[in-house]
Amino acid sequence: MWAYIARRVLLSIPIMIGITALIFLISHSLPGGPLAMYLNLPTITHAQIEHLTIQFGLNKPLWMQYVSWLGKALHGDFGRSFVDGRPVLAVIGDRVPATLELMVTALIISYLLAFVLGVVSATRQYSAFDYTMTVLSYAGMAMPVFWLGIILILVFSVDLHWLPTFGMVTPGVPYSFLDNVKHLILPVITLVVYTLAQESRYVRSSMLEVMQQDYIRTARAKGAPERRVLYRHALRNALLPVITVMMLDFAFLISGALITETVFAWPGMGRLFFDSLQDGNYPVVVGMAVLVSLAVVVVNILTDIIYAVVDPRIQYS
């Protein structure tokens, strides 16, 4: 067991290094170069550009830039934003609460719904309900998220005037919880539709798999009531794979919902990444991509370990 965990952690080291190197390399081969946001100023002079190049360490070979970046990053220093000179971690940190608010709300709602819908679908496989759910969830996945967002805005804001369109709170008025919630509704619906489509299918599959296991058949054969079989035996066992998969979602949570945040002008981390890329704000782009990817790796390891501990069927060699 411990050997398995150790192996798993060791394996992740080259992956983490690979991730940082890959992101660093791609980011630095972006056209415009790291100074693009300065070069487009008509007033910039040759001398200023040279000075900035030295100030940001861009005059050194790429591998040296990478090594020095990695060295600092290991100490928690991801550099400073090119835009405002603030530390990258502080810039990212500013966006965390907004992203958490949106994502946690959306994920909780979609998990709860996913369990109910998925379990019902599985227990009534091939019923009209199951059939409808299948089509709906595939439709949910076929929908470009930004289009769904725009349609929701069209209907609920532009036409019906029921809900605010953009942002986290109404600009210019004192904060109120109700106002915040109103702003949450449309982006959360957008995210839930998309997430739910996948999660409910996943719950359904997992339930179906468990229900074909021998121990369920045994339970049934022994005459246990169907209800008991379903909820005592099947659901409990089906939960495990579902939960591990859902854990992965939390890793992606940090990246925020880039598209949804953009459509609804939600000031979260996804939008920060997009804006930074547009501005050519390299330190923030690299910092965010690396941090989020590393979080994915860490959650993966945790998931595997938990899975290995809990599920005796998995052999760890």
Binding site: L11, P14, I15
Partner: peptide
Amino acid sequence: MRVVDIALSIPRLFLLLLLSVT
């Protein structure tokens, strides 16, 4: 498989955007 792991660990939208610019 490690390369696959690396590529899978970077959120797909980030990768899509980075490659688009490049």
